[in-house]
Design a protein around this nucleic acid. Structure first.
Lengths: 114, 114
DNA sequence: CGGTATCCGCAACGATACTG
DNA sequence: CAGTATCGTTGCGGATACCG
């Protein structure tokens, strides 16, 4: 179908958003990124990074040292998309109070079964 | 934890993104929105709209007519967040060719089993 | 340290039927 | 037309174990 759907879903995925924003400020190692993205498991971080790497948004650099070291950096393409994502997350953080105020408890449309 | 996480996930959810962008151009009825958001089921559209309504991004107007009619419109808050989302989706559509080009020629890390 | 492999529970999702 | 209810399936995502 539409090829941009897949890319969009990688970028807007739960962890994709946070990884892109996390790398926005600069290169990070795997463990640093994991600490910065609160709540992500190793597996999901790894999967998310592979998807973003495959899309050309993230550069993965492996160093042959002991202990192993892997750096993750946004590509120029990644920086551009991350800027868009960050604009969104920044808007939410700046306006979270307005949202909290607008959010009303929805009148119950269904009652719990008895 | 962080209250903005929930809002972020509603907004960046698979259908949330497409609904916000779809409503950006103006008010739509349920069935119109369903046609516009390709591939969404009634159930998911309904759930997505409820989440966005609860967050104060979407206004739901019910008309007491036959046949029934329900209009969905972005609130001012919704318009603002939709603008951020649309900036992201527009970037992807405009740059999908660059992404597609960056994607190719990724070195295989694992070989298919023989 | 930086992963991949495997298992598996559970929530999300789609399809269908039904209702106001 | 605009949903809700129910059900069966799927695949996300966490936990664990193990490898380079």
């Amino acid at each position: 179908m539409c090829p941009s759907r897949g890319v969009l879903e990688h970028v807007t995925s739960r962890w994709g958003v946070l990884v892109l924003v996390g790398l926005q400020e600069g290169t990070l190692r795997f463990s640093e990124l994991r600490r910065r993205v609160a709540g992500v498991s190793e597996k999901m971080l790894s999967q998310t990074l592979q998807a973003l790497e495959d899309d050309g948004f993230v550069l993965r650099e492996v160093y042959a040292v002991v202990p192993p070291r892997v750096d993750y950096t946004l590509t120029s393409l990644g920086s551009e998309v991350a800027a868009q994502v960050e604009a969104l997350t920044d808007w939410i953080e700046e306006n979270i109070d307005r949202v909290a105020q607008a959010r009303r408890a929805r009148p119950e449309r269904a009652r719990a079964p008895r």
